[in-house]
Design a protein around this nucleic acid. Structure first.
Lengths: 338, 338
DNA sequence: CTGAAAGCGCTAACAT
DNA sequence: ATGTTAGCGCTTTCAG
């Protein structure tokens, strides 16, 4: 080891000098090129270690070498959903020696555009984005970036490059059909700040469409202008029930966090599930499935979305051509709350 | 806008040519230097926009400009705890125009060491790490990196540079004293793969110490070799109760996820909380506080840790000297389960 | 307020 | 298997 405070980090040429070879040989050796003699390799590694050499990938990438950074833009980290996706991304990227560079858009198209610009400035190897209403500028930045781009979560819209996700509209429709099949007829919806969450919006649209096809309607539809949470679901359901003169048969909640809040409200009020009131959520979080009565919901494959998105980037970088759109599907869980 | 597929991105000199000024003037203009005439600035911005210019920060950073990347190493993303910390980091970093570059160590010191090396290769402006048993090499890499480093979560050990967190040992001790004050005498502990989670370990240590000081002991101590989860807590409590010939008064669970699982087990079995059995967790997750009976636990200030860690990095970069160690504390929540 | 020169540390391309 | 040459695109000096 060397001094604790080395102001200037050692460079390739210093390693080269110590090892008695040229810079390029050190470069090749340290990058694991097969065309370096075992003996040379060893000597270079020794020299690098003894100097505490740490490769400068800024210089490498600028000189035309590959980057191992992948830009990742997500709308939020508050709910476990996006960390789950990020986990899948990270696992696969890490295996390939890549790192996610993160940006959070807060569901704001302007922030999103800014982030795309900022992340592109680092010339990443690829970009993964859970879109929040991309602007034309955003789209054109991505189209012109000349790198693999994966839009995740949703496959209801046409992607700039690639897409991995599921149909939220389809999920909403399927849940509506499932609930109708259970015999429910009076439907209500309780959502969080749905203006900003286009995917929650798409589910509601699909839900409505399916009801409509069966000649039914949504009796009540409440959206609260706050991010989703268990607390909000609990409070929201209380409010929804208070303001309905006739209690609905079933409430479709914008996601599991909200739905679990609803379940807790019912528990506290002695409202029996599903006899007195039925509830359905979305996401299939562990939380909802571990309740004494498992939540009726739609399980999504979040980590899988992340993994596949990473694979798309890596495949493309390897010169192959991944599917333009990948549907990871979803699974309706007929739990005990509806 | 320009062609969808621009193979080579425009460079500073192209913008300069179009604007009729020198490269350096464009550089200054685009970085918002005050010493650029308003008229020139405008012309440069026009030129940049019309070419779809995206700054290359690789080149900028290599040439000695500042980096706006901050390496972030976390042990896991599976539990909401670290995403919460990451959220706090991201908020503050984003405000300052910085981005986190992420690495997940999986609680493995070797992976951690590798990550530190990889992230340092990008010459980030700073590094934030939730340590997982740092090796000597890790420590020496950080010490010699010549950049601000913040170790987060824990302040029980001496940091290489700066630390932001709380005393987990203290939290365990406080909970033990709280439970003893409630009159409980037969204590049990239920943990997840605690070998890997040094902070959970520290809490248990503090818990034991406090019992010991009062002349009490831990009657049962079960650790399951799996990551913590609601499911594991539910299953684990069942197992723990089955194998105890005399039921404990109270079970200290390694965290809230585990504890909520325990609560669900009790609900399902008709075990009354806290009369028949008391439970306590750790973290103060929303989940536990929204249960019909709020969980007794220790609230941690996770997002705050992230925010302060980011501030430490930014302060140091601004030339100021932040506190070497920041204790964000914790708050014991005397809920209804103990 | 603007510019010219020099070089950050590395790697691709072309030798040998 | 190793070396030489020539930048990558920007920003830091240092000059006006």
């Amino acid at each position: 080891m060397q001094d604790e405070k080395q102001a200037r980090k050692p460079t390739l040429s210093e390693v080269a000098a110590l090892a008695g070879v040229s810079e390029i040989t050190v470069s090749r050796a340290l990058r694991g090129s097969p065309s370096v003699a075992g003996k040379t390799l060893h000597r270079v590694e020794q020299a690098a270690a003894s100097l505490g050499y740490v490769r400068n990938r800024l210089a490498g990438a600028l000189a035309g070498g590959p980057s191992n950074q992948v830009g990742v833009i997500l709308p939020s980290l508050s709910n476990i959903v996006f960390p789950d996706v990020l986990k899948g991304l990270e696992i696969r990227l890490d295996q390939a020696g890549f790192h996610p560079v993160l940006g959070i858009s807060n569901y704001d198209p302007q922030q999103e555009e800014q982030l795309i610009h900022n992340l592109l400035a680092w010339r990443p190897a690829g970009l993964v984005i859970a879109p929040s209403g991309m602007t034309d500028v955003s789209r054109s930045l991505l189209a012109g970036a000349g790198l693999p781009v994966v839009e995740i979560m949703d496959i209801d819209t046409d992607p700039v490059d690639m897409a991995v996700g599921m149909s939220h509209r389809g999920a909403g429709g399927d849940m509506a059909r499932h609930l109708m099949a259970q015999g429910y007829r009076r439907f209500a919806y309780l959502g969080h700040d749905i203006e900003r969450d286009r995917r929650a919006c798409a589910r509601l649209t699909g839900f409505r469409e399916a009801l409509s096809e069966a000649g039914l309607i949504l009796d009540a539809c409440v959206s609260l202008a706050e991010p989703s949470s268990v607390t909000l679901g609990r409070r929201g359901l209380k409010q929804l029930l208070a303001q309905s003169d006739q209690r609905p048969d079933v409430v479709y909640m914008s996601n599991d966090d909200m739905a679990v809040g609803g379940v807790f409200h019912c528990m506290a009020q002695g409202i029996r599930l599903p006899q007195d009131l039925a509830l359905a959520g979305f996401n299939g979080l562990e939380l909802g499935q571990t309740l004494p009565v498992p939540l009726t919901t739609t399980a999504t494959h979040r980590t899988r979305i992340g993994e596949i998105a990473a694979d798309c980037i890596l495949e493309r970088l390897a010169g192959r051509e991944p599917a333009r759109s990948t549907d990871v599907g979803f699974t309706l869980i007929a739990g005990g709350t509806a």
